[in-house]
Design a protein around this nucleic acid. Structure first.
Lengths: 121, 121
DNA sequence: TTAACTGTATTAAGAGTGTTAGTACACTTG
DNA sequence: CAAGTGTACTAACACTCTTAATACAGTTAA
């Protein structure tokens, strides 16, 4: 279901968060569908249940999933997540634009890159 | 010359690297101009000389500055740095575009944000 | 030459974070 | 009741960031 990249310097729990969001955005995990249990996913990825728990807690804090004690974790809703991702994008893009300006990259150069990347596969 | 942000979670040496690049890109530090010495900057920022040294070593490794033992550190060249920053930008922008696609953000929406951010101050 | 400045290297220690391990408790389901 | 869920807690280890204290080598100006 999920693959970890140990070459990635980011913490495992962050990778789990990102992959789960991807699975939801791709529609692999539908709204209200149950996620693998903490212990099951930990076993599957050969990591500690605490690490999975940390990822799930953060996903719940972000409103991406909801938890029912004794039953499991469930997908909260794909549209809310999409809107959330779009909002997250903005400050990150602003930082990139600032960096581009500092390096004297024109808006046209920048937009050309966007066009190129958007048409990519 | 440089101000640190202790609310920023990133390591101090990374902040020093970024601020030095900014000073160079802004033209505050011209090509071949001497940077503050390791001990002087450390004193100025109230941090350890080792931390400054780490930042300077990384800046040299990236080709942003060059060091002469016994004399000091000097700015390598602003144009090379600008080109370097533009190249660094590309993979970061690609990741953002990927994220945007996943969230079903259209190229037009994205480009509109770019336009907005570019015209900002 | 000497003194004071440069960069550079080394070792040790402390703080913080990420991860694992083990255990325990409460809730739900069959 | 038993097995599965989420949740909480403590302890230990590894790694990184940072500081501290030296030490050494090169440069420069008095």
């Amino acid at each position: 279901m999920i693959t970890l990249d140990y070459a990635d310097r980011r913490p495992i729990y962050e990778q789990v968060i990102e992959r789960m969001k991807d699975l939801i955005l791709l529609g692999v995990l539908a709204t209200d569908e149950q996620l693998p249990s903490v212990r099951e996913l930990a076993m599957d990825l050969s990591i500690n249940p605490n690490t999975v728990q940390r990822a799930y807690a953060e996903l719940e804090r972000q409103g991406v999933i909801y938890c029912v004690k004794g039953r499991g974790n469930f997908v909260a809703g794909i549209n809310a997540l999409k809107d959330k991702q779009k909002e997250e994008l903005k400050p990150q893009l602003l930082e990139l634009v600032k960096k581009a300006k500092k390096a004297d990259m024109t808006e046209n150069e920048f937009t050309e890159l966007v066009k190129q990347f958007y048409s990519q596969q």
